[in-house]
Structures are given as C-alpha cells and as structure tokens.
Design a protein around this nucleic acid. Structure first.
Lengths: 152, 152
DNA sequence: TATTGTTATACTCTATAACTATA
DNA sequence: TATAGTTATAGAGTATAACAATA
C-alpha cells in the first residue's frame, strides 16, 4: 500500500483498509458486548428474513457445512436459533431465529448503526451523501477476485 | 441498518459494511493463498518499520500478551519473524521480521493493492479522489467508541 | 513489588475426511 | 448413487489465570 504522500493523505487503498478495520473492529466489539461473535451476528442477520437449510446457510456464510453444524449448535444452545425438521425431506432441516435471537440481533444492529452514524458525522450531510453514492457504486458495480455472496 | 430505500440505494451504513466485508474477505483470501491469516499479515506489516517488544506489539494488535506468544511462535516457526533478546533487560525481547517474512509481506501487500485498485476502477479518476478524501476525513477525524491503535 | 513474557487451559471458529440416514 | 447433515479430528486464534525471571 502506498506509503502515504503526506501525513494527512492516507491514499485510497490505505484509507479504505483503515476504515474497514475500524468498522470490523467496531462490529466485533459491539457483538462481544452481547457475547456474540461477528459470524454469529451475521448468522442472525441472515435469518432475519429467511429460514434456510444448512447447506443454503453455508453458502450464504461461505463456510463448509461441517462448520455450520458447530455454529448452529452453539447458537441453538444459547436459544438464539432452532433447527426445524423439514416436513418433506427427513434428512433436511431449516434454521429459524428465535424471538430471543431476533431481539438480540436487533439490539446489536441498532448499536452498530448508531455508532457508524456517529463516525461519519465528521462529514457534512452532503458529503455523507456523496460518500454513500460512491461506496454504493463500488459495492454494486465493482468486482473482486471472488464473486462473494451477499453478507446477509 | 436501514432496510434500503430502494434496491439501488444501499444506505451509507449498509454500504460501508458491505465494502468492509468485501475488503476484509479479499485480504483473507489473498493472505490464505500465501498460507497466512489476516492477523499474521498485520503482524508482518507492523514489523515492516519497527522492532517492538511483545507488549508493544500486543498494544498495536489489540491482543493480550499471552495471545502474542502463540502468534509469534507460529510466525517464528515458519521463519517469518525472530525474537531478539534485549541487551539491557534480560526479561525482554523484541520481534524482528526476517528477510523471508518481509518478502512475503510485500507480495501480499502488492496483490491486495492491485486488487483494491481494480475494485475502485468502476469510479472515474476524479471520483476515486473524492472517495479517498472523504474516507481519509472519516478515518482521520472520526472517532469510534474505542480509540483504536493504528493498524500498523 | 512491579514488569516482561510464557505456560496451562478452555473456548470459538474453521477445514478435511469419514460417517449416517434418507432420497 | 447422490444428497443433507453430523461427527471426529486437528489447528489457528483468542482470553483468563497462574507462573517464572528479572528489574
């Protein structure tokens, strides 16, 4: 990454990574305050409006199905999700968020949302909008080496 | 996070997180291609221009000192870093990147850099500059719940 | 006593490989 | 045979608590 031409100029790549680490760290910290990990938060987030099977869930989270078993075990052990046996296929089960999981997910989401908004408050309203537009363009139209599944 | 007013409008918070996850995933993937984890890449990055003690390193990485021991063990086992006993304090040691570690770090850095530049190429040059400016402003002037140490 | 660092232990997260049960 | 999922096993990464050696 470019060395930074001046102290005040991070360079685009460095700036983006610094921002990413910051947001990632923020999410990890807020999640931890509720005894959750980032992956657990993502799991609950996905289940907000879906009731996927294990394989589907593994695809969303880009994990092996065996990793999902443990993840769902731990979440379900804490009463955040439950396995629902499939009616038509005795091998299969779907994963459903519980009321408790949904609530916890919402609390985390609100805390995160609030903190990000505080972070970007150093920008004027119009600059915030400009940033949103630029970021959306990169996210929606930019492609990376691996075409990643949406985070939730 | 806001539900997304329209399909094409992610909203600032969602967009920033989507971008963060994307960059984080990209870094993890490229690191893994070189048998490294993100934390190992960060470790090597910090050592690029420093030879800190274990406690100092723990502060940089925001880890417990005991976590550092294992991290440095594994990196040193692979010949990427070495512990240098301190001359004046027999308890202390500093951590130094080896030539091999430096080289590996550089390769990863270049791959990452290139891929990020490819990603933002959907924006015009002037939009890229605008984005860099806005991001730098947020990163340099925005504050989050925990005042994080610089990533490297 | 305080500081630097390691060790013991335990847990989460992840993968690979082998397995079970059903389709 | 193929598919959905779990289990066995192993390793990285992390924390807390206890420890050793030195200051």
């Amino acid at each position: 990454m470019p060395k930074g031409r001046q102290d005040q100029d991070l360079g685009l790549v460095d700036g983006l990574f610094e921002l990413s680490f910051r947001l990632y760290g923020m999410l990890a910290r807020i999640a931890a305050e509720h005894d959750l990990s980032i992956i657990q938060v993502r799991l609950l987030g996905i289940l907000r409006d879906r009731e996927p099977g294990m394989l589907e869930l593994a695809r969303y989270l880009e994990l092996e199905k065996s990793s999902l078993s443990g993840l769902v075990d731990r979440a379900s052990g804490r009463g955040l999700v439950e396995r629902i046996p499939s009616a038509d296929d005795a091998r299969a089960a779907t994963v459903r968020v519980t009321a408790r999981g949904r609530k916890l997910s919402r609390v985390v989401e609100e805390a995160v949302n609030e903190e990000v908004l505080t972070l970007v408050r150093v920008l004027s309203k119009s600059d915030q909008e400009r940033l949103a537009t630029l970021v959306a363009e990169v996210v929606l139209r930019g492609t990376t080496g691996s075409a990643r599944a949406p985070v939730r």
